[in-house]
Design a protein around this nucleic acid. Structure first.
Length: 965
RNA sequence: GCCGGAGUGGCGGAAUUGGCAGACGCGCAGGAUUCAGGAUCCUGUGGGGAUUACACCUCGUGUGGGUUCAAGUCCCACCUCCGGCACCA
């Protein structure tokens, strides 16, 4: 037994102070880029340097540090750099609030963050630090811009763009999330401005198709990108107005063309004026005015009822020569497709609602996949004997209230129509809805097969009672029994479509497209939701766009040797762009030397971050952004880690820039990140008073009432954020328990990809574990053999064998969990189990094996060290070693060590666990011997009780299952 | 509405290829130590039941079905929650 009083208590602050600068001083994290051997590029998404990092940020970096340390001990040449996404609006806003220059604010945050990393024991190759707001970085961002410009991938155009009035700048499409500015939550307004764009849509197909090969990426991120790119296949079809103007529409359903009974243009569509008749002009003008005022959120709400106005104009449906009215409505967007649609109300939900509201004809041209026809018949509309006739024919008929409901299938429709006609009373009609649409009158059955048929039905019905019914669908749309068969968007058989009737499924689309192309009235087309990337920003704190405008020479790129175009060094006075800085725009033309003006916009900060992973390979190169042979060797990044909030923006842009640079010959690969991991957020309870807002946990007492007004507080767990006052400050955790404890808890608290609550009790548990390891290791050093001792495995007693096995098993598990599974919580759990077993072994009264103890203790410290590097470095010295842990190879396990002498094998009878038999591992691996051993067990014999075994399933090493009768 | 993901003890979670459900930790309970608190250590801890015996039985992984000797895991239908997109033609 050990005298625990002789061991110094675990004092993390003292231990951590001793090793804080050790790893950096020894240069362990400096990487050799020239080396080509076993390289491993690990990359965290570089942070925006804003104030203090909290324990939620820590999760990201601790994961990286653990993986990096393991990889280093495993003999990899690891590159794990860090940099700063240092341009951007928060710096400007903070600068305005605190009256400092954004540069000062940014750089001081960086200094602070570096200190926090050191306190966490999170190490990087600081020789490779990149900072996007410094000229030696943004010079190359400007170079990237010019490369894209020279090859037609950057262009300027006037466009309607999203402008955020709060941020005072335009936004990329991707930065408008759920209709509001991603950063400040303000609804953007539409502005027509000349802006720079990157031609990302040229790469839409490749960005989509290459997703499939990104097997190391999470499925949800790939799906999100797929949705964002939003590729849809269909056709562009040209309609003509009566005056001969072309209206091109995009449709994914060319097979429904025969059902296009009207057209809808976006209110902003250029042909609207010309189409509008004098009679409609006022209404159209008013509607367009109102649409222009409505915000995008209002316009794009699916809840809202459809609105629109008839222009008075008509176009010709090219497939059947029929005249269709042209409407305008704000459910058609200028930003998608051609800003004009053909409306097929029978097979498009929006068009259906619009047609019903405005009384436009609805003609089914596709048979639904579900073959069901319904006919609701008022009793007073039919002669006696109707129900009997229907029953006699064997069709389903229900009776409720004053009506019959007949349900049938398409093959029965003709017979039913005949029966209905025979029974319908004079002046009445019967509707048939579903797989067939028809109206039955005493002297005729009219199929809803065309607009003309629709008119005739309406005319006949109106004759009788002068109703206000506009179209045939109105006659049946209010009938409850019809609700789920009125409309469908199935890819069924084409009907009422001339020669194409009878064509069905996806093939219909292809055939119609081929025919459209042959006739010259349309062609196959692909449409994307993705738009070109708007990169101009009207703010100061970004990389200036390196373009000059000359009256003589036009748009002139700044020559490469004149880069960088420096941000003007002004005393910072507030919200402004480069245009507000006197003298900045004035320059001379690089081509003719005459007077010229600079572009006064800066680039979106996502441009900075779209290529930084390349710069880490040669961060100080003054002649190149990066060196091809080096990046070709080190990239794609082996493991990229960051928040899922970048699933679309940053990751899509970085993929685009990589592909563009590849095509321009600068790099030899097409995807930047081989494996991607998105870590979950760390949450913490936040307390809110409806009157006084968010409260710090410290202000809250047990009664959960507001200290100011006594109101009951709302409590809920949220992602840590300063504004909700629920951040956990790592400094407090480190002061109280040490960084090692924070690291172990962070890794142990749950699967790293999942959102999780930070629990103070959990932190204490991690601390307890480290204390236990400390006491156990230091308290047993005297009983261990010297380092390097080789145990005599053959002489082990049972307890020693078990511990020996546990050591090998744990090493294997931790190695696989970290390297392959990214499952750090189970890795830590396995180390805890080893520590528990080791503790049990040293506490027992039996004689212990000094060599085994040495190996187990050394091994425990080595595999724990990536998680708790400070305390392990200390314990390593305590164990009598002189060298650093990072100079040690990762311990290895051998298969022999994994084999146990005896194993317990569960035995099931009829699927229920009835016994466990202890057998030697040889027996356990032998199917027949294992089955025999199971049957020989006395408990099993008892359960069998003379019944016969019909089937025996023995899975070597796993279990035996007996089926008995 | 569409597309993803997830539902397992009081809590976080484990079970990697269909093979002993609940590893590991928190919390809780009892005990040891202590003047006391804290810290530490030991024991127990899914529900229900049984027994002289913790070498027992039984139910149990969101719900309902199914496949299988065997299902948290596979299939079908559904419910709930989270995330993304959303009048995208």
């Amino acid at each position: 037994m050990v005298d625990k009083h002789s061991i110094p208590p675990y004092d993390p602050s003292e231990v951590e102070a001793r090793w804080r600068s050790f790893w950096a001083d020894r240069g362990f994290f400096r990487s050799d880029v020239a080396s080509r051997d076993k390289t491993f590029y690990y990359l965290n998404m570089f942070p925006y340097p804003s104030g203090y990092l909290h324990v939620g940020h820590g999760r990201n970096y601790i994961i990286g540090d653990v993986v990096t340390r393991v990889k280093m001990m495993r003999g990899f040449n690891v590159l794990n750099p860090m940099g700063w996404d240092a341009f951007g609006l928060p710096a400007e806003n903070a600068a305005i609030d605190n009256n400092v220059h954004p540069r000062e604010w940014t750089l001081s945050n960086i200094t602070n963050a570096r200190k926090q990393f050191a306190a966490w024991g999170v190490e990087f190759d600081w020789d490779r630090e990149v900072t996007t707001c410094l000229p030696d970085y943004y010079r190359w961002t400007q170079w990237l811009f010019l490369e894209l410009y020279k090859h037609g991938l950057a262009y300027k155009k006037k466009a309607t763009v999203n402008y955020c009035p709060m941020c005072d700048t335009v936004l990329a499409n991707e930065q408008v999330v759920a209709g509001v500015c991603e950063r400040c939550g303000t609804a953007p307004v539409a502005k027509d401005l000349e802006q720079w764009f990157f031609r990302i849509t040229d790469y839409a197909d490749r960005l989509l198709e290459d997703l499939a090969a990104l097997e190391g990426w999470p499925e949800n991120v790939r799906k999100m990108q797929e949705n964002w790119i939003g590729r849809s296949f269909g056709a562009e079809v040209t309609f003509r107005t009566e005056s001969g103007d072309e209206i091109v529409v995009f449709t994914t359903r060319p097979d429904t063309l025969w059902g296009a009974t009207f057209m809808v243009l976006a209110p902003e569509h250029p042909l609207v004026d010309k189409l509008t008749t004098d009679k409609q002009r006022d209404a159209v003008h008013a509607y367009r005015h109102q649409a222009a005022l409505a915000s995008d959120i209002d316009r794009s709400s699916t809840e809202r009822e459809k609105t629109g106005v008839f222009t008075g104009g008509y176009a010709i449906n090219p497939v059947n020569g029929k005249q269709v009215p042209v409407w305008i409505a704000d459910y058609v967007l200028t930003s998608y497709g051609t800003g004009a649609i053909m409306a097929v109300p029978a097979h498009d939900e929006r068009d259906f609602a619009f047609a019903l509201k405005f009384g436009l004809p609805i003609v089914p041209v596709i048979a639904p996949l579900r073959d069901e026809i319904r006919s609701a018949v008022a009793k007073r509309d039919v002669a006696d004997g109707f129900a009997a006739a229907v029953k006699a024919a064997g069709w389903t008929i229900e009776e409720r209230g004053g009506q019959y409901l007949v349900t049938l299938q398409r093959s029965q429709a003709d017979a039913y129509l005949k029966t209905a006609q025979e029974h319908v009373r004079e002046g009445r009609w019967i509707g048939v809805v579903g797989s067939r649409f028809a109206f039955v009158f005493p002297d005729a059955v009219i199929e809803l097969a065309s607009v003309e048929a629709d008119r005739e039905i309406v005319a006949r019905v109106a004759n009788g009672n002068g109703s206000d019914v506009a179209v045939a669908m109105d006659l049946v749309a209010t009938e409850a029994a019809y609700q789920d068969v009125l409309f469908h968007a199935d890819h069924g058989e084409m009907i009422h479509s001339g020669a194409f009737s009878g064509t069905s499924g996806e093939a219909a689309t292809e055939k119609v497209i081929a025919w459209l192309e042959e006739k010259g009235i349309g062609e196959g087309a692909i449409n994307y939701r993705l738009h070109d990337w708007l990169i101009s920003r009207q703010r100061y704190w970004g990389a200036p766009i390196p373009i000059v405008y000359c009256d003589k020479c036009g748009t002139v790129p700044v020559p490469e040797e004149q880069l960088p175009v420096l941000l003007p060094d002004v005393e910072f006075i507030g919200k402004m762009g480069l245009a507000d800085i006197p003298g900045y725009a004035e320059t001379t033309c690089p081509e003719c030397g005459g007077p010229a003006r600079r572009d006064t916009d800066t680039m979106d900060t996502f441009v900075d971050s779209s290529w930084y992973f390349l710069r880490f390979i040669s961060p100080t190169d003054e002649h190149h952004a990066f060196v091809k042979q080096d990046v070709d060797h080190w990239l794609p990044v082996d493991q990229y880690v960051g928040g899922v909030e970048h699933a679309i923006l940053h990751l899509l842009y970085a993929r685009f820039v990589t592909k563009a640079l590849h095509d321009l010959g600068h790099i030899g690969f097409e995807e930047p990140f081989r494996r991607l991991f998105t870590q979950g957020m760390v949450c913490h309870p936040a307390y809110r008073c409806s009157e006084h807002g968010w409260l710090f946990p410290k202000q809250v007492d047990e009664a959960l009432c507001c200290p100011q007004c006594g109101r009951r507080l709302e409590v809920a767990s949220f992602k840590m954020s300063k504004s909700k006052r629920n951040v956990v400050d790592p400094t407090e955790i480190i002061d109280r328990y040490g960084a090692d404890t924070e690291r172990v808890y962070t890794m142990f608290m749950g699967p790293p990809d999942r959102d999780i609550d930070w629990l103070d009790e959990g932190v204490r548990g991690a601390n307890r574990f480290l204390k236990r390891v400390w006491t156990m290791i230091l308290g047993n050093v005297d009983r261990m053999s010297a380092p390097g001792a080789v145990p005599d495995v053959a002489a082990f007693d049972d307890a020693a064998k078990a511990l020996w096995h546990r050591c090998h098993f744990t090493i294997k598990k931790v190695t696989e969990d970290v390297e392959q599974r990214f499952s750090f919580n189970t890795a830590v759990a396995a180390i805890m189990e080893l520590a528990n077993d080791l503790g049990r072994y040293t506490d027992s009264d039996e004689e212990i094996d000094g060599a085994l103890l040495r190996i187990a203790a050394d091994g425990l410290v080595l595999i724990l060290s990536p998680f708790a590097p400070f305390v392990c470095e200390e314990l390593w010295r305590g164990l009598g070693h002189e060298d650093a842990i990072l100079e040690q190879p990762w311990p290895c396990y051998d298969e022999a060590g994994l084999v146990q002498d005896m194993v317990e094998i569960p035995v099931q009878i009829n699927g229920k666990l009835r016994a466990r038999v202890a057998v030697s591992s040889e027996v356990a691996e032998d199917r027949e011997a294992l089955a025999k051993a199971a049957l020989a067990d006395s408990r099993i014999q008892e359960w069998l009780g003379g019944k016969s075994v019909i089937k025996t399933i023995a899975i070597p090493g796993k279990m035996v299952s007996l089926v008995v009768k």
